[in-house]
Structures are given as structure tokens and as C-alpha cells.
Design a protein around this nucleic acid. Structure first.
Lengths: 257, 257
DNA sequence: ATGTGTTTCAAACGATCGTTTGATAGCGGG
DNA sequence: CCCGCTATCAAACGATCGTTTGAAACACAT
């Protein structure tokens, strides 16, 4: 397992049914001369997609930043959408691999007991938060954090990348939080990942708003803050309505008016 | 106070220094005949900005959905950017007013003691979460939740809308969490708002992924989940390093490899 | 040198974008 | 009746978008 670096087949653009007009065969990504232009395009696209947005970043801006020709994008990737997929796939694989490595190490080290909730959360959070330690990783962190809260045509692509992590972490959380209903557990994990996404996608706003007090690029602090906050939330007593019909809908501000 | 419905001055488009060529005077938004087209444009833009994105929604899509002419946008708002600002301003004002009302009611009801952490969080979360109860509000909820995690040219516009809420809620949280350092408090409130944003911007993904178990449109459940989770996180013991140099940077997965 | 396949380039394609224009209705008060 | 004002409309503006094309530049085995 731990697959992260497969190269897709030719992946010819869905248009043009007569596929092979001049030259379109994808090239082996390892030990290739043209890797220069390809990775330059990936780096530039990663940075610009993060700074602006996929929709508001033009291929001309990308190729200008990468010092390449416009047609190079379609030659190496086929289309703008597949360029996005390539940018995303290049970095999310290693992150998820580190997550699964960390989880498995914890499980075997603690067996037959269970690892601590904090350790499991750390294994999930740290590889992603560590992206913000490097400039390129920080660009990708903004991209991934932003893509998770905006579903466009790329949502299914993104979702698939995280299936393995979800499948392996969820049972562990279920065992570590036996007193929580499934709905409670899912809600709270959702909130924890929301916190992670918010930090990943931050672009100096939090640091500026706090006068440098809270720094999303301080990986160690970020990890401990998210882990301790989420662990405390997961340990909160279960809500009143397990899966009841509509039990307990307390709504405030009916005081006056 | 509680200002939410001020109309901006003429707000002439920054181009064309000789401003008044044919007809550009903004109209009084109350008791006006043309409110029809104006609000139809606002409604359509609100929905489409939420479904797609600001950048990937064209004015022609908006005017087609609003059954209006292309030029109507520039006649009533001046530009696409000011249309976004109008869409945002129309709904965020009442939400923040309800938040401040709720907070003040809590403060006077509990005086001279302090209200509970849960009640203050509820006053902050409920008015926003309640947006998801109506289709139009749900569109705006997606828009606001998404805009907060993506900073474009509209970030300063958005930030200004929330200044009042921030200024009035923050001192209360400081008093309610006296054992937390400022950095800890800001981090954890940031996480709580991240959870809120994630729920607001959800577009059926969570419900579909959980088989209907977690429904972002079930306002009562959402509020209680966010409030209890965030309150538990805020009550977690303070982290080791208050503002220390680099204390405690435990990094896992140094097991093998 | 020749041939083959890969990579890069300038230039153009049609489509769509935000914005502007000038004319055309509707409607009030003089 | 005509005038000033508001609102809407069809049509076009220049700019920029993603994509395609065909040829040049390059590498390298024979």
C-alpha cells in the first residue's frame, strides 16, 4: 500500500476522438529530461492557485511565472483541470502516507492497548501542518485547505485522495470514543478537521490580526493547539439527542423583542 | 447602534473622472419602484456566488437568472465587485445585530455575574447557523463560510463587517477564560469559528458522506454541537508554552524510516 | 548525415468576460 | 404637451480566457 506516486496513463484530453494527432503520449515522469518544465509548471501553478484561485488564475500567468510557453500546459497535462489534479496529487500522497505510517506505528507500539487520543490526533494533524514549514508546502497548504471548503469540479478528485486515511483512522476513533454516538463523533471530527483546514489555508491573516501572537507557520504550536483543542472537544459529554427524532432544540435569544 | 441598513452614497465607479454622463445617481433603497430588479439581482447573485464562486460566476449568468439586462448590474451597483459587496452587506448586518442583541441580553440578565460560556457561544453561533434554515439564507451561508477561508480582493470588505462583533465578544471571552493566555484563547476561538465556517459552507457533502446522520441544516443540532465542542475546547488546560521561545515541540512518527 | 521522436515556440482560434454606449420606453409635475 | 428623471434594453467595445495548430529546435540511435 502507501501508494502515492503512480503515473496516470496517457490521459488524453477527452476532446478530439481521433486522439493521436501530432504528439500526445505522456512521458515517464522518472529519469526524464523535460522534468524541468513540467515541475516548473507544477510549482508555479501550485503557488498561483493558492495565492489566487483556480478559476481566477490564468494559464498565461502560470506559464509566465514558470518561464514556459502557453502550449506547454496542454502538452504536459492536457488541460487546465488536469494540471490542477496533478498539482494536488503530487503533494497530498506523501502527506497521507506519513499519516498512515504514524497511525500504524502508534497502534503497534501500544498493542494490545489503544494509543492515546492525543497521539492519534497528532498523527493526523502533524503531517498536514508540517506543510507550512516550507514556502512550497505553505502554498499547497493554502490550496488544500481552501479546496476542502469549496466544492467545484475538483471535489471528487480531492475526496478520493483522502479515502484511505479516512478508512484507517475512523475505526480507531470509534474505539477511542466508545461513549460517543456516531453522529457526535463525526460532528466533532468534522470540527477538528475544520480547524486544521482553517489554519492550513491561512494567509497571514491570523498572524497580522494577532500581532504575531498566533503564527500558523509555527508547526509545533499549531499541532499542539489543534490536538489539545480537538481532544478536549471529543472528550466532552455526549449531546442529549443520540439519534432521536428532534429532541432538544434549545434556541436562545428569545429573551425580548 | 446596531447599524445594518445604511445606503452608501452614489458610489460612482472609480473609472470615468467626469462622473455624471447619463444617469448614475444611486436611488433611495426604501420605498422605490425599481427595488424589484435590484433585489432580483441580489438574490440571483447570492445564489450563484454560493453555488459556484465569485470569479467563476459571470454577470451574464446572474442577469439571466434574475431575468434582467446585463447593463442593469452596472446601473444599480456600478460594478461586479460592488455587487458582491451589496450581496454580502445585505445579510451580514442582521446576523451580527442578532449576535450583539443576544450577547447584551445575556450580560444584563446575568449581571453582576458573568453569563455561561455556552450561552455566549450560542449567541455567537446561532444567528449564523440559523441562516441555513431557509434556501436563500443557505446560499448566503455557503458564501460567507467560503469567503472567510479565501482571501481575495473582498477580504477587507468582509473583515470590516465583523469588527463590531469581534470588539464586543472578545472582552467577554477574556473574562470567561481567565486562566488562558491570550494566544491560547485566540487559537481556540479561531478553531471554533473554523468549525462554524465549515458547517456554513457545507453543500450537502457532510450529509451525503454520513448517510443523513449529520445534517448542517438542522440548526438546533448544529448549534449545540458547535457550542459544546468549542466550550470543551476552551476549557481544556492551557498549553505548556504560554509565549515561551519554542517550548515543547513533540513531533511523532520518528519511529522508523 | 539521416531519420525519429520529444519538446518548445509564436501565432492564431473561437468563446466569453466586464464594461460602456445610445436609444427607448414609463412617469411625474410645470 | 413637453420636460426632466428613472429604468430598461439591444448592441457593441476591447480584453482575456482555454485551447489548438504547424513548424522550428533539440536529442540521439543508426
Amino acid at each position: 500500500m502507501l501508494d502515492s506516486d503512480d503515473q496516470q496513463p496517457p490521459a488524453q484530453p477527452p476532446a478530439s476522438p481521433a486522439a493521436e494527432s501530432p504528439a500526445r503520449g505522456q512521458v515517464d515522469p522518472s529519469s526524464d529530461v523535460s522534468r524541468d518544465t513540467r515541475t516548473r509548471l507544477l510549482d508555479a501553478a501550485e503557488r498561483l492557485f493558492a495565492e489566487r484561485t483556480f478559476a481566477s488564475t490564468s494559464l498565461r500567468q502560470i506559464t509566465a511565472a514558470a518561464d514556459a510557453n502557453i502550449a506547454a500546459v496542454h502538452y504536459h497535462f492536457g488541460s487546465k483541470d488536469e494540471l490542477f489534479r496533478a498539482v494536488f496529487h503530487r503533494r497530498v500522497g506523501p502527506v497521507n502516507d506519513r499519516r498512515l505510517q504514524g497511525l500504524r506505528a502508534l497502534l503497534t507500539a501500544a498493542a494490545p492497548a489503544e494509543p492515546s487520543l492525543e497521539d492519534v490526533l497528532r498523527a493526523l494533524v502533524e503531517p498536514a501542518a508540517a506543510l507550512r514549514a516550507t514556502p512550497a508546502g505553505r502554498s499547497f497548504a493554502c490550496l488544500i485547505g481552501r479546496s476542502l471548503s469549496a466544492d467545484g469540479p475538483h471535489w471528487k478528485t480531492i475526496e478520493r485522495e483522502f479515502e484511505g486515511v479516512k478508512a484507517e483512522f475512523m475505526p480507531v476513533f470509534v474505539r477511542l470514543c466508545p461513549e460517543l454516538s456516531t453522529a457526535d463523533l463525526v460532528w466533532r471530527l468534522h470540527f477538528g478537521l475544520a480547524s486544521l483546514c482553517m489554519v492550513l489555508s491561512d494567509t497571514d491573516r491570523l498572524r497580522l490580526a494577532t500581532g504575531g501572537l498566533c503564527d500558523p507557520d509555527d508547526v509545533g504550536t499549531v499541532v499542539e493547539q489543534i490536538v489539545s483543542f480537538t481532544a478536549a472537544g471529543l472528550r466532552a459529554p455526549a449531546t442529549a439527542s443520540p439519534t432521536g427524532p428532534r429532541a432538544g432544540r434549545p434556541s436562545n435569544l428569545d429573551s425580548d423583542r
